[in-house]
Design a protein around this nucleic acid. Structure first.
Lengths: 338, 338
DNA sequence: CCCTACTATGAAAACGATTACACACATATG
DNA sequence: CATATGTGTGTAATCGTTTTCATAGTAGGG
């Protein structure tokens, strides 16, 4: 139904001119019909009919060339294989679909340079806007974001002067640390991630430290380790901690994934089932929740952040001239199982 | 550096003509330089210089209109929030990036009609090819696939006449069932998914049944339940099974995610830690492996299937005329923890 | 009745690349 | 020496839309 078969048997794509001829109007009229310009009811009807008959569909490529808009949004993520990112992209995709856009996904595999590379690629290429699920923000990032030719919204980090949707990691970590400090007796250790990831690295660690300190149970700097966001790195760091300081009674982690690794390590060293009450995380991972009954963690509305960021971006693109819609939005959090 | 600033201060994008003028050649020459046509060393040098100077980048939109190719591949997935799909898309993205393509991701959220919708959208739209991570394959799907204007490769299901990369779910399930039957004593139950998903539903269930039967420990049809791929549905089905048949000693599941739910259910009913030795799954989920030490499951090379499917697709697109590259490819599997 | 303002319309000019075609020159082939 | 064959180049057509412009009819306001 979508193609017309010519007499030679070769499929030929129907173009606007064909529709116009069939309807007895100019192609300008067809274009107007499609885009909501002036068109008489009479011709509109004929055009509608001709389109149905031929199964015509617009060439989005010609349209893109002429209008400069592709209805494509570039989404840059650090890792596709992670629950938080999955949830965020689910939220992004939801809004995009509803508003007639499509998602061009770029996966950087946690390489900051690939992030910049994609930022560059997307600018000169076919996207109308960019959502960057950010991890590390270097000066180079800041420059790239600033000079970006298309609107861009960040998720996960708060960057001055840029549109972003983020969570208050410091505050959340503070609350978690404060709550845990009161409940625990022995030594507390911490497995974090690089400070270059301001939100998940710096803020969570500093917030957690401050929370513990405020509750009168400060964190021993010697009991801090760095992981790489992965389960295995959490496991490794925990094993090392437990061998260096066998009297550690609790291991707080910067992510649930690393917490799962730490949990495994504790189970191995101290016996099965021991880990469950001795780790905390960030992110409220569904798997972890189900399998452990719930470790202390922080719930973030990842899906919501995707939704909000995308709406923000699309408002700027589709919105009336003046108002840009771009701003910064801090979302709430929720302590779980404390 | 990417734009030239005109005297009025308005940013203007550099186009091929500008480069050509600066280099003192025709724009055809520039195009040839860019695309590897005949060009003298002398002019090539001048053009190269002019491009660097102006920071020129091709308009992929004009290029797409003229050539009919967008270097975009549509990827349709049933759910973005799942380890198997994440791994597959990671594989797809890897190959795409290496070979100069980008990924247009469409998430159907397990709705078969949205799958068809995207298939249609992609055809008339800007993709050069499609990778469909398939679940249910209806007649309508078959028709849509057959009449697809661009090359398409399926992942996860075996469809006659279509290019596909898949695993032998029947055989894997048979082996798993056979291996487990020998090791277990009591009653075995099964939580599957809809038969409409031929691979994960029909094949796994039938294979598992056959494996048990072959080992002389057939599956009681009354102990079969249907889940929805989710952890919660696995949990629900298991709770129901345990209440209806309290003497069930083992619950095999069609996915690791549902197995996690079943595990939780057993732990709740029979006491913490009981579940670990009483469930099996499919997919070798990393979280589950770490947290349980490993339940019996089947390991599939999900990343590999993404890689293989994409290579297959791109070979057809980039390859020499004759050979299509499209074929069917069955990947191996590996029993874990049995 | 005259002047705006709005609705309708088609012809033709963009948008920015690729490429068919025509031509020119060099080198090899017989 | 005549004739292929392979390089190198520019002009102009082309891809399929959207949009400017010119033109007209129609209605409303004074």
């Amino acid at each position: 139904m979508v193609k017309a078969i010519s007499m030679t048997g070769v499929a030929r794509v129907v173009k606007m001119k064909d529709v116009a001829e069939l309807a007895g109007v100019s192609s300008a009229a067809v274009s107007r019909y499609l885009n909501g310009g002036y068109i008489s009811a009479d011709k509109a009807e004929r055009i509608k009919h001709a389109i149905e008959l031929t199964g015509y569909v617009r060439s989005s490529q010609a349209r893109a060339l002429r209008t400069g808009s592709t209805k494509l949004i570039g989404v840059i993520v650090p890792k596709i294989n992670s629950e938080s990112v999955s949830r965020i992209t689910a939220g992004i995709g939801q809004v995009l679909g509803r508003r007639g856009y499509q998602m061009l996904l770029a996966n950087t595999d946690n390489a900051a340079d690939r992030e910049l590379e994609y930022l560059d690629l997307f600018q000169n290429h076919p996207v109308d806007g960019i959502v960057l699920v950010a991890t590390m923000i270097t000066d180079e990032h800041r420059r790239a974001i600033e000079s970006c030719r298309v609107p861009i919204v960040l998720i996960g980090q708060h960057v001055e002067g840029a549109a972003c949707v983020y969570h208050d990691d410091y505050e959340a970590a503070f609350e978690l640390g404060h709550a845990l400090a009161g409940r625990l007796d022995g030594k507390i250790a911490y497995i974090g991630v690089t400070d270059e990831d301001r939100a998940a690295g710096f803020d969570r660690r500093r917030g957690f430290e401050a929370g513990l300190r405020a509750a009168g149970n400060p964190l021993d700097a010697a009991l801090i380790r760095l992981g790489l966001f992965t389960l295995d790195s959490g496991y490794g760091a925990a094993r090392e901690l437990l061998s260096v300081a066998p009297d550690v009674s609790f291991i707080a982690c910067a992510t649930d994934t690393m917490a799962a690794g730490a949990l495994r390590a504790i189970d191995e060293v101290r016996g099965m089932g021991e880990g469950i009450h001795r780790v905390s995380g960030f992110g409220d991972n569904a798997f972890l929740r189900a399998l452990t009954g719930g470790i202390p963690t922080v719930h973030y509305g990842y899906l919501t952040s995707g939704v909000e960021a995308t709406n923000m971006l699309l408002n700027t693109l589709d919105g009336e001239e003046g108002e840009s819609g771009l701003k910064t939005l801090k979302l709430g959090h929720q302590l779980m199982n404390v």
